[in-house]
Design a protein around this nucleic acid. Structure first.
Length: 854
RNA sequence: GGGCACGUAGAUCAGCGGAAGAUCGCUGCUUUCGCAAAGCAGAGGUCGGGGGUUCAAAUCCCCCCGUGUCCA
């Protein structure tokens, strides 16, 4: 980056000088006379015991000092965004304050909610998890304090110069740091195809802020200026607080009394981990993350289990729910929503503790058994076993070692090796390509006016053709709903042509007809929408919102929709929840939903400015995931549920008719799926189900109410029948055995033993069973032959001392080119088709005789 | 989203190519005033589902389904 980028009038005006750091070699600006930039590792911490600001601040006071400083400087204070980035689908968590404004604001598509603005944004960083508690300065969740400005060519708010002035004013003015002790180090920031200069702000060895100026788009090697430039700053609230107090570690400054309390039971670094995780968890769980084994939920589980592991070292010590509750109370002073979710968070946590206990207990058993088995083989547990156990059972090596009688050493590079096990993983393969992508249209084609938003009941309209490409027709206006938001597309007609699909691309809605569309641009066409299908889709969509609201009411605010599907015949909703639904919970959901249906509440659909809607309803709006645009379409079921949604909806809840829950299943850890139907389809299904029940009852010859009992009886009969068949067969076989033993032509006695040889019509299982019966008395050799599909089977069983069935078989195999094997008491072989089975039997008899004679 | 482990009797699991097992629980009998317990006898399994390999599959291979776990 060109040095001129950093040569700011503010620096010049105020006597800053540009120096080169003797440590890292970077250029930096300062009023002082440092040889080095004031950041680690070039400069050691000098604030420990010697606070650098005018007075010590607690976390809350520092936050307030920061925000009010920027308010005085003309910024608008914003409330925090959720730590789970619901408005984006490229990341799980909010990792910086600028995430709040990506991508819509930073791309220029949406005006910022305020400009300039200041915010305290709790952000999550899982990369440094191992450092938390050890380094003295890392946190899983920290508050990124920020002031942002968004500049358009026609509206410049402020950029580099003013940013540095504001920053310096905060540190040296409001907070009272020695102005000479601050250094601004020149750096380059790059991300997401954009880049720009940045300044890293150091005091007393601590990097307290980064000032980023998003200015250019990378275009190969060239840089193009961005139409919208962005001031992206980030100040570490915890670091500022720490620097103001000068305590030994940041944890003492940030957590104060609560940390002290935990230190009575735990070593300092573990106490710090506990309280750090408790803070992160309170935000995560309040923002609706349900612990699970995948996606965002995994991180919540990770933090929970790490905490539980530490807590388990001190039996009878503090417990996780109470630690969480205490920290929640503290956080709630500034973020009241965290206090409001306390009960729900407790439930989620308790369910998770229970699951962890069960998983651990299972794992312990497996470990103990595995060791015993290995020991029986004269082997011992190795470090590799520890690795596999951690990976597949979730047992940390320290826990596994406790369980072992002769534990191996835990490999030093344990977690590196865990990572190595995952390196071979295949990269994600994308789903099969979507069916024929929609064609591109020139930008001269006017956007489709979307009419179904305004009136979902109109099913007949006139439009003008603006473009046709192959089977696709684009109109100037349409009431046809395109596939989207989990709702399938409308069907119907354009004039006499059937519309088989409707899809959206960019600002256009494409109607697909059979064959090439015969319309000329400019032609007027009449659109008619299949009204039955549309009505059913509306009912299913509104019912989905009703269910979502009801599930949240019954199960708690951690419930979020993770997916939904609305077709004419059936609809589904997937929501996050920490266990399956009980029959009772299901009943309550059913009653709640159908109650709201009967109350006939109004369902209002309208557009609202995004920022305003977020302010009024919060981020629970984004149940369907991220939605684009500066205006949100809001669907509000009065006093019950509000979501951002582009679907077609009923205008009153009673139009939904009735909601029938058809099925509930846990589709993965932390997600339950409800399948349901509403409106006429619900009635239709009910009739279908009734008919099925009646038919089943008729076939069973019982009344419908007696079906369950009838089925039980039937099952019992089947079981009895199976038992009878078994006994009968057993009886037959026993009779056969008796007959064979009494038949001198088929038996011969050698010493105390008897050889029985016979051809029987039995399958493999029968041969085995018969041989077993013949061998009930010791001293018998059974040689049985059966013929099936032209292939002969020879079975040899032996209970005679010194006679191996396997050896007898081996001796006979050659006679009919048989393949097979077995063990000394039983052996079978199957011969080639047409091979002489009788010869094989003869050979077996000879072999048996010889063996007995020995 | 990907990797790994696991699905066998009501429960917990063993068996990991050759004739389905153990322990607890259950039923009956013996003993006991009763309980606890002991002894004896017995019932209970399409070895998660479907394909394949093999003379032979709970066991090996593939695909599903389910459970758990690690990682992003």
């Amino acid at each position: 980056m060109d040095a001129a980028e950093y040569d700011l009038p503010y620096f010049r005006r105020n006597g800053f000088r540009r120096r080169t750091c003797a440590g890292c070699g970077s250029a930096f600006w300062t009023l002082g006379d440092h040889e080095r930039c004031q950041e680690a590792p070039c400069q050691e911490y000098t604030f420990l015991g010697r606070p650098i600001f005018g007075k010590p601040y607690e976390l809350r006071a520092m936050r307030e000092a920061f925000l009010s400083h920027f308010e005085r400087e003309g910024h608008t204070r914003l409330r925090r965004y959720p730590t789970v980035a619901r408005w984006r689908n490229d990341v799980f968590f909010t990792q910086a304050s600028i995430y709040d404004f990506q991508p819509w604001v930073t791309s220029g598509a949406l005006p910022p909610p305020a400009n300039p603005l200041t915010i305290s944004q709790p952000v999550l960083r899982f990369i440094d998890l191992e450092e938390v508690g050890r380094s003295g300065r890392h946190f899983t969740l920290f508050e990124m304090m920020a002031h942002h400005a968004f500049n358009r060519p026609d509206h410049e708010v402020y950029f580099k110069d003013r940013t540095v002035e504001l920053c310096h004013g905060l540190l040296a003015g409001t907070l009272g740091a020695d102005p000479r002790g601050i250094t601004y180090k020149e750096e380059v920031w790059e991300g997401g195809g954009n880049l720009g200069p940045s300044l890293s702000v150091g005091i007393a060895g601590l990097e307290v802020a980064t000032l980023v100026f998003m200015e250019y788009v990378r275009d190969g090697d060239a840089l193009r200026p961005m139409p919208l430039t962005v001031v992206d700053t980030g100040y570490g609230l915890e670091r500022l607080t720490w620097a103001s107090q000068g305590t030994r570690t940041a944890y003492e400054a940030v957590f104060g009394r609560e940390l002290e309390e935990l230190r009575r039971s735990f070593p300092p670094h573990e106490a710090a981990v506990l309280i750090d995780h408790a803070r992160a968890l309170n935000f995560l769980l309040t923002d609706g993350v349900v612990p699970s084994n995948s996606k965002a939920g995994y991180f919540a589980r990770l933090l929970l289990r790490r905490s539980l592991r530490i807590l388990s070292k001190v039996p009878g010590g503090p417990e996780l729910p109470s630690i969480l509750e205490r920290t929640a109370r503290e956080i709630a002073r500034d973020f009241p929503e965290v206090g409001e979710h306390r009960d729900d968070v407790r439930k989620v946590v308790e369910a998770e503790i229970e699951k962890y206990g069960e998983a651990l207990e299972r794992a312990r058993q497996t470990i103990r058994r595995t060791e015993e088995r290995l020991r029986a083989d004269g082997r011992t547990v190795t470090g590799d076993d520890l690795l596999v156990w951690y990976d597949s059972l979730g047992v940390p090596p320290e826990v596994a070692v406790e369980e072992l009688k002769s534990p191996p050493a835990i490999p030093d590079d344990f977690y590196t090796r865990v990572a190595a096990r995952h390196e071979a993983e295949k990269p994600t393969v994308d789903e099969e390509a979507p069916e024929t992508p929609l064609p591109e249209l020139p930008t001269t084609v006017p956007p489709t006016e979307v009419l179904y938003y305004l009136d979902p009941y109109t099913v007949s309209f006139e439009g003008r053709v603006v473009a046709t490409i192959g089977p696709y027709v684009v109109l100037d206006r349409t009431f046809f709903y395109p596939t989207g938001g989990g709702q399938v597309a409308d069907r119907g007609h354009l004039d006499d042509l059937e519309v088989v699909d409707v899809a959206r691309r960019g600002p256009w809605i494409f109607h697909k007809v059979e064959g090439a569309a015969p319309f000329a641009p400019g032609a007027k066409v009449r659109g008619r929408i299949d009204p039955v299908r549309r009505t059913q889709l509306m009912q299913h969509h509104t019912a989905t919102h009703l269910l979502n609201g009801a599930l949240r009411e019954v199960l708690g605010p951690h419930v979020w929709q993770t997916g939904a599907y609305k077709a004419p015949d059936v609809a589904r909703i997937d929501v996050t929840h920490y266990r399956g639904l009980s029959a009772e919970e299901l009943r309550r959901v059913d009653r709640t939903v159908n109650g709201i249906v009967r109350e006939n509440r109004p369902v209002k659909s309208y557009f609202e400015n995004r920022s305003e809607a977020e302010r009024r309803f919060g981020f629970t709006l984004y149940q369907g995931g991220a939605v684009p645009g500066k205006e949100l379409r809001i669907v509000e079921i009065e006093g019950f549920d509000v979501e951002a949604c582009g679907g077609t909806h009923c205008t009153h809840t009673s139009e939904v008719g009735a909601v029938s829950l058809l099925d509930v299943e846990r589709i993965q850890d932390g997600v339950v799926r409800l399948t349901f139907a509403s409106g006429d389809r619900a009635l239709e299904l009910r009739e279908e189900h009734e008919a099925i029940l009646k038919e089943a009852a008729r076939r069973l010859g019982v009344a419908v109410v007696e079906l369950p009992a009838g089925i039980d009886r039937l099952l019992a009969e089947v079981a009895a029948g199976r038992r009878t068949a078994k006994t009968l067969r057993q009886g037959d076989l026993e009779a056969t055995a008796e007959a064979l033993l009494g038949d001198p032509a088929r038996t011969e006695t050698v010493g105390a033993s008897t050889i029985v040889a016979a051809n029987v019509e039995l399958d493999r299982g029968g041969l085995m069973e018969l041989s077993r019966l013949l061998g009930r008395v010791p001293g018998r050799v059974a040689i049985l032959a059966a013929e099936r599909d032209g292939k002969g089977t020879l079975f040899v069983g032996s209970t005679a001392p010194g006679v191996s069935a396997l050896e007898v078989l081996e001796a006979a195999k050659g006679a009919f080119n048989g393949k097979g094997g077995g063990n000394p008491s039983a052996a079978t072989a199957v011969g080639e088709p047409g091979a002489p089975l009788a010869a094989a039997v003869g050979a077996a008899r000879t072999a048996a005789r010889a063996a007995l004679a020995r």
